[in-house]
Design a protein around this nucleic acid. Sequence first.
DNA 1: ATAGACGAAAATCTCGAGAAAAAGTATTGA
DNA 2: TCAATACTTTTTCTCGAGATTTTCGTCTAT
Lengths: 237, 237
Amino acid sequence: MNELAIPPESVAEDEQPKTLAEAAYRQLRRDIIEGLHRPGDKLRVEHLKDQYEVGAGTLREALQLLVTDALVVAQGQRGFRVAPISLDDFEDITRTRVLLETSALQQSIELGDDAWEANVVASFHLLSRAEDKLGDGGKCSREEWEQRNRAFHEVLISACPSRWIRHFQNILYHQSERYRRLSLFRQPIPRDVHAEHQAIVDAALARNTAEATRILTDHIMRTLEAVKRLPDELINR
Amino acid sequence: MNELAIPPESVAEDEQPKTLAEAAYRQLRRDIIEGLHRPGDKLRVEHLKDQYEVGAGTLREALQLLVTDALVVAQGQRGFRVAPISLDDFEDITRTRVLLETSALQQSIELGDDAWEANVVASFHLLSRAEDKLGDGGKCSREEWEQRNRAFHEVLISACPSRWIRHFQNILYHQSERYRRLSLFRQPIPRDVHAEHQAIVDAALARNTAEATRILTDHIMRTLEAVKRLPDELINR
DNA sequence: ATAGACGAAAATCTCGAGAAAAAGTATTGA
DNA sequence: TCAATACTTTTTCTCGAGATTTTCGTCTAT
């Protein structure tokens, strides 16, 4: 297991919530990323406390946690809102992700041991299977694909010793997940995503840093291009 | 002014607090960075609410805000602690800062206009003056020098259009401020810090990106070396 | 003497109500 | 008809008390 008591991990992902506030936080986060609460929407505590079945103060705390992830913005004395989205913001997110994730991958390739390699292969396999089942007709939810895609990218950089890079990367991944949902909702996962993942794995295991980071960059940037092609009204609301 | 309503800025720095929770948050942050609450210390709500003269729920909220800055860690059902410090952590912070800040400086040099140049020169001047007064015998508080040093570094990268990089950089700066206090408390500001700042300004205004980023990197890394030379008991507690 | 378990004390988490602020609505005057 | 003002409603912010959980000291048994 991971040693705890070290700051830069907002909340451990897999463990189950130990407090009502944290439970509400996770539900809210999912609902925001899924688009149930839309960008720019006002989040009224009085309404939401019933919906999520917690007290006002507790829900407030959950909202505060979401501010940490920059999925919610708090404005002085005027309550909370779902963080707005924009093309400029997504471009920023994407470029920053590239900066952090390539650096992390570079270190991961340099430092990763056998166990890391095994994890990379394993998570890639899980992701591939999810893609198969997804194309096969709803044998596998997109929820599950997202989960495995996330796991794959996380494992790739797991050998990077910098907790801070991983922490920031984590935040940015959640952010971009909101945008990716928009694009995946329209066009199902294109075929070449699998090929890109495969290429990254190959390069990483061959310890070919330059090649691996190059492909990863293209891979991330491609999502940006996909979102750019979306109709305006999906983004500017 | 800056347009608000955009997420990645935890709380606007200069404006005055609009809520009790935010006021408590700022006091607490200052006290943590100053070392009044020491790394690893438990932050008991029941005690602190009297000290900061707010209700329990309000103080709780202030603590939650500090979690965003990673100056405080919240552990499940076991309350809050001041984020611990370690040499490894500071090394991580420093390297990540270099990664982000050089990238930001690079873009700043590329995109900065006349107003940016003017701000760079101005903030450098203010910083230099603070250094003079500081060496001159306490005409100027170290508090003020910190403030201006911070402003200088912020202005340097202010022409970088990426809000996310600036946001992360902001967090890391606060973090490293804690460590820098440790080293500055012992040895007052060394003479060559001024020269380094001067060199950065010169290279930046000459639009010499390679040179500017190189000096900035050395500049940031030097603080790491200084902290590494500190006695162990200052860091590991 | 060490390990484990029981019980008391402290701290955290949670809730609902009251005070302060913002937003919305209606009224009045030009 | 429009603008400004006063009032009402909604929402946020703040506080203190009760329910759970953790923590710490003590006691017993091996």
